[in-house]
Simulated assay, not measured.
Amino acid sequence: MRLLLTGATGFVGGAVAAALAGRDLLASTVFLVRAATPAEGARRVSANLARFGVETAITPDQVVLGDLTEPQAFAAAPGLDGLTQVIHCAALATFSTNPAIWAHNVDGTLALARAVHARSPGLRRWVQVGTAMCCGPGLPSPVAESWEAGRDEEAHLVPYTRSKIAAELALRELPGFPLVVARPSIVVGHSRLGCAPSPSIFWVLRMAFALERFTCSPAERIDIIPSDWCGEALVSLALAPRLAHDLYHLSAGGRSNRFDEIDVAYAQASGREPVLPRYQQVAVDELRSLVPLFEQRLGRVNRLLILRALTLYGAFAQLNYVFDNQRLLAEGVPPPPPFADYLAACVRSSEHVPMTEQMAADFK
């Protein structure tokens, strides 16, 4: 086995690297890393593994230097020879309108796939990590795994989800390409380490509880999974001898917690009363009315950034989606722990981190 992992310096990719370490497979893994030298790339991967509690040194010869926006940099890299599996986590994962999104997530992904396919004729599986939210609005919940959902470019709420499904559809057109698409739902924290590896998304909940207002109703379910479970599921999909499908949701499904259950768990973890008696559900177009509360409840913040963030995440939350995960469970992957079960770890690991610092992970 020779596996290529991209995005190992990020959140989901770091969780995959940690899962590979837990299976003693790091020595059989090479990493595509954006760095000046292989030694620098190895240090970056090792440092990210440490955030996931894995103390090990990646060696420079395990690093393939490459930037997805500059595909010529890795087109001739010898590290792409002889690969048997690829887990492609690398992406410009942002809800901002970063102009590099398409070049990175679509053009760069396709260039890497073509290079790997040409250089590694024995490639058995390419696991493309997408997002379940690429399905677009207006679907019944639970949302089924489908190649049809999300094709309408105008229906996407942000460029990121549009780019992710565009990459999947383009990869699917490559002749003989062993594609399997994995679409995680909302990845928040780590089931043991909380937000120590990354505070991504958790700040949205902090904000909602501080403001005592958001776009969810108390009875709506929020489909959240921990990064470590997500990493283990991706490795399982990559290594399985056979798979029944080429598209999977990595989601909580029937284990998704209701908003009021999350409220109770958050209150217990933070030593506060639940906000539910005071909570108000608001529509997305009403979020602007909360601006006067921002500094009162959240401290010194960038009002425009907070409003933009709430509007974007509020629109996704308002979809009220749970994602069907029966295909993944049928492959023998155990279900994820409910978010409420590990929320306390997220609170403990992030309560002293400024809100704006947490938000930086999602607004590149």
Rank of each mutant, 00 (worst) to 15 (best):
227 S>R: 01
195 C>W: 06
202 F>N: 03
208 A>Y: 02
218 P>E: 09
161 T>P: 01
177 F>P: 00
181 V>F: 03
185 S>E: 09
229 W>T: 04
134 C>I: 04
151 R>W: 02
169 L>A: 07
180 V>R: 01
179 L>P: 12
193 L>Y: 01
163 S>P: 12
214 F>D: 09
221 R>F: 06
135 C>T: 14
173 E>K: 15
205 L>G: 08
134 C>Q: 11
210 A>N: 05
234 L>V: 09
198 S>E: 10
178 P>H: 01
181 V>H: 03
235 V>M: 08
195 C>R: 07
226 P>Q: 06
181 V>T: 15
163 S>T: 14
143 V>P: 05
220 E>N: 01
220 E>W: 07
191 S>G: 03
142 P>A: 13
142 P>D: 08
233 A>R: 00
161 T>G: 05
201 I>W: 11
228 D>N: 11
152 D>N: 15
139 L>D: 04
216 C>Q: 06
152 D>G: 10
211 L>C: 03
185 S>T: 12
148 E>Y: 05
217 S>T: 11
198 S>G: 09
209 F>S: 05
223 D>K: 05
194 G>V: 08
213 R>Y: 01
151 R>H: 15
166 A>W: 00
207 M>T: 14
171 L>P: 10
183 R>M: 04
177 F>I: 00
193 L>A: 04
212 E>N: 05
153 E>F: 07
166 A>T: 14
216 C>P: 00
225 I>W: 02
199 P>Q: 05
217 S>N: 07
223 D>V: 07
210 A>H: 04
155 A>E: 10
229 W>S: 00
163 S>H: 12
146 S>I: 11
233 A>D: 03
146 S>T: 13
174 L>V: 12
161 T>D: 08
147 W>L: 12
191 S>Y: 06
194 G>F: 09
225 I>T: 14
163 S>M: 11
174 L>I: 15
233 A>I: 04
209 F>R: 13
230 C>M: 03
178 P>Y: 00
168 E>S: 15
152 D>C: 12
168 E>F: 11
168 E>L: 13
195 C>D: 08
220 E>Q: 15
141 S>H: 02
236 S>L: 02
190 H>G: 08
165 I>F: 14
205 L>E: 00
189 G>W: 06
173 E>C: 12
232 E>H: 09
134 C>W: 04
158 V>S: 07
215 T>P: 03
233 A>M: 00
211 L>A: 04
228 D>R: 06
144 A>R: 14
214 F>G: 13
230 C>W: 05
145 E>S: 14
141 S>E: 05
137 P>L: 09
221 R>V: 12
230 C>P: 04
149 A>G: 02
160 Y>D: 12
176 G>Q: 04
173 E>T: 13
205 L>K: 03
208 A>P: 00
178 P>T: 05
202 F>P: 02
144 A>K: 15
225 I>N: 03
199 P>C: 15
196 A>Y: 08
187 V>W: 09
150 G>T: 05
221 R>I: 07
199 P>V: 04
137 P>G: 04
185 S>C: 13
173 E>F: 08
213 R>P: 00
231 G>P: 05
140 P>T: 12
184 P>A: 06
